[in-house]
């Protein structure tokens, strides 16, 4: 169902984009300098781009049912191979970013939530709102300018070594952590105001024991639930980061496929991202169920 919806939607959107698709595909294949009307016509004839839309869509869906994503219109390689290659690069970037954001956001949020209205709480509110308000590409550029260009600590772009991870994942993580921290802070402040928090102390537990045994688990439920929602932000961010830092991932590929009207490639990537969204949310539902017995009831 998800696959059909995403496939159809991308197909319609790609068809309705302005510009001559054949021309763009030809440019993608041969480079902009080598394109002329003859090359575009050749592409048009080869791919049957003038044909009616509906049979083309139905054919794509039929192929999909046989797990055949087709070949890229530009490189001629099977889409499956291309995506499998790029997905690994994107997933590792996203994973590092999420882990990094969890190291930054929730601990600060919990500390702030333990003393609502305290200094840390107020500073954190300003900083997280500020970071959230900056568009991610701007944040990335600022980090590049400061850390790569001025201080020369880190490479501005590239892929392959561990240090190449730092800038793109840090940019993503800051955006995620800004929200994580708020969620953790609100959850912690709410929990610290609950009767069971007071009762844990009355039982004789110290502040630390109370936090470890009754705070963390309870905070993690809304945090993990929210992680599912953040996945959209994350995908968006990954696409931007990959373009800025030249990261050979699925987002980078998607942007290029759109530029060169590589419809099967766009459909394939969008489909993988869409199914990924469904899968991540399913996993999160399972995790929340395990953590919170009330949900299962």
């Amino acid at each position: 169902m998800v696959a059909v919806l995403i496939g159809t939607a991308t197909f319609v959107m790609m068809r309705s984009l302005p510009g001559d698709a054949a021309w763009r595909i030809a440019a993608g294949r041969y480079g902009y300098d080598n394109v002329d009307a003859a090359a575009a016509d050749a592409v048009r004839a080869e791919l049957g781009l003038d044909g009616p839309a509906l049979p083309a869509l139905l054919q794509w869906l039929g192929d999909l049912a046989r797990f055949d994503f087709g070949n890229s219109l530009v490189t001629g390689q099977p889409i499956v191979d291309e995506i499998a290659h790029q997905l690994g690069a994107s997933a590792s970037l996203a994973l590092v970013a999420v882990l990094l954001s969890l190291l930054i956001g929730p601990p600060l949020g919990i500390l702030a939530g333990l003393r609502p209205g305290g200094l840390l709480d107020r500073v954190l509110l300003v900083v997280s709102t500020g970071i959230k308000a900056i568009p991610q590409f701007l944040l990335a550029l600022v980090l590049i300018v400061v850390l790569a260009v001025q201080l020369r600590w880190l490479p501005a772009a590239g892929h392959g070594e561990a240090r190449h991870f730092i800038l793109p994942s840090l940019t993503l993580a800051l955006g995620l952590a800004a929200v994580n921290a708020r969620i953790a802070r609100d959850a912690m402040a709410r929990i610290a105001d609950m009767p069971f928090w007071r009762f844990a102390k009355w039982k004789g537990l110290s502040e630390r024991q109370t936090l470890m045994r009754h705070g963390l688990r309870n905070v993690s439920v809304p945090l993990i639930t929210y992680l599912g929602l953040q996945f959209v932000t994350l995908v968006e961010g990954v696409i931007i980061m990959e373009s800025i830092f030249g990261w050979p991932g699925i987002g980078h590929a998607l942007v290029h496929a759109i530029f060169s009207r590589d419809v099967p490639m766009v459909q394939g990537t969008a489909l993988v991202l869409g199914l990924g969204f469904v899968m991540v949310n399913a996993l999160i539902d399972v995790a929340v169920r395990r953590l919170d017995p009330r949900v299962a009831a």
Partner: peptide, 8 residues
């Protein structure tokens, strides 16, 4: 009822 940790 509210004084027991709901997740424990």
């Amino acid at each position: 009822w509210l004084s027991l940790d709901p997740l424990m």
